[in-house]
Amino acid sequence: MSFEGPWPYIYIAIAGWLATDFWRWSGVIAGNRIDEKSEVLNWVRAVATALVAAVIAKLIFFPTGTLESSPLWLRLGAVLAGALFFFFGGRFRQILGIAAAIAFLAAGLAIIGA
């Protein structure tokens, strides 16, 4: 498509903005009817978490860009290294876990010559 004139902006507004905010607004309407202590909210929480987990799994198992050609064992090894530091990291476990995973990945990419 051409990127000239107002058309791309209309395209983005309809196929981008309306297509995403429709679901956010539906979420507000649904969330407004849910009691904070109800079993329904527990289910909604589980579904929302599983959706985000699916996005995470996709990023790890089927990455795009540079990592697309990297070996799976390297990516899984990085997650495992991160988990190890995360679960034994004490107070700074989040930053330690993330740093360990990225360091493992960077070292692996350097060794295999990415």
Binding site: I14, A19, T20, S26, G31, D35, L41, V47
Partner: peptide, 23 residues
């Protein structure tokens, strides 16, 4: 077509927002 692809990828917004609103 673009609307359909984007909207399918964004359905997850609904339960995410619905879980956040009561909080």
């Amino acid at each position: 077509t673009a609307f359909l692809a984007v909207t399918l990828s964004s359905v997850r917004m609904m339960p995410m927002v619905a879980a956040l609103i009561p909080e």
